[in-house]
Simulated scan of single mutants.
Amino acid sequence: MLSEKTVKDLIDNALEERSDLFLIDLKVNPDNKISVVIDGDNGVTVEDCMFMSRGIENNLDREEVDFSLDVASSGATSPLINTRQYKKNIGRTLAVKAKPDLKFEGELTDVDEAGVTLEWKTKEPKPVGKGKITVNKQAKIMYDDILEAKVIIKF
Rank of each mutant, 00 (worst) to 15 (best):
V128M: 09
K27G: 00
L15F: 13
K123G: 09
D66R: 09
N82D: 14
A149P: 08
N59V: 05
I24Y: 02
K103N: 10
D41N: 02
F67P: 03
D41Y: 00
L26A: 02
L102R: 14
F51A: 11
G106M: 11
I24M: 07
I34M: 10
K88T: 03
V65Q: 13
D70N: 11
D20N: 13
G91V: 05
T83D: 07
D112N: 15
S78T: 05
E16K: 15
R54Y: 02
D39H: 05
D66E: 14
N29V: 01
G40R: 03
E17R: 14
K123T: 09
A95W: 04
E113V: 12
G55N: 06
E47Q: 13
K132R: 15
F104A: 06
L108K: 12
A139T: 08
I146L: 03
L15Y: 02
A149T: 04
K137L: 05
E17M: 10
S74D: 09
S78I: 06
S19H: 07
G40W: 01
I153Y: 00
G43N: 06
E105Y: 05
V151T: 04
Y143C: 11
A139M: 06
V111G: 02
L102Y: 12
V36S: 12
M50D: 14
Q85G: 15
F51S: 13
F67E: 04
D70M: 03
E57H: 07
V116N: 01
S35C: 02
V28L: 06
S35Y: 05
I38Y: 09
E119V: 15
R84C: 03
D101N: 15
V135I: 13
P127H: 10
I146E: 09
E64S: 09
L108V: 04
E105N: 12
D61P: 06
A98R: 12
E16Q: 10
D101Y: 12
I24W: 01
S19W: 03
K27S: 10
V71H: 01
T134K: 15
V96A: 13
A98V: 07
V65A: 13
T83I: 12
E124C: 07
I90Q: 01
Y86F: 11
M52Q: 01
G43M: 01
E107D: 10
L80P: 06
T45S: 15
V128E: 14
L102G: 04
V111F: 05
I152N: 09
D20E: 14
A14D: 00
L94M: 08
G115D: 07
K121G: 03
V37H: 06
V96L: 13
G131K: 08
S73F: 08
I81T: 15
T109Q: 06
F104D: 07
F51V: 12
R18K: 13
A149K: 05
N29L: 08
V128K: 11
A72C: 05
D145Y: 04
V44P: 07
A114E: 13
G131N: 07
I152V: 13
Q85K: 13
W120Q: 11
E124M: 14
D31L: 00
E119T: 14
V128R: 10
S73R: 09
G75I: 08
N29D: 12
D61M: 05
C49G: 14
V36W: 04
T122C: 11
S78G: 14
P30V: 01
Q85S: 12
L23N: 03
D112T: 09
D110C: 03
P100V: 06
R92W: 00
T109W: 06
D112C: 08
A114F: 07
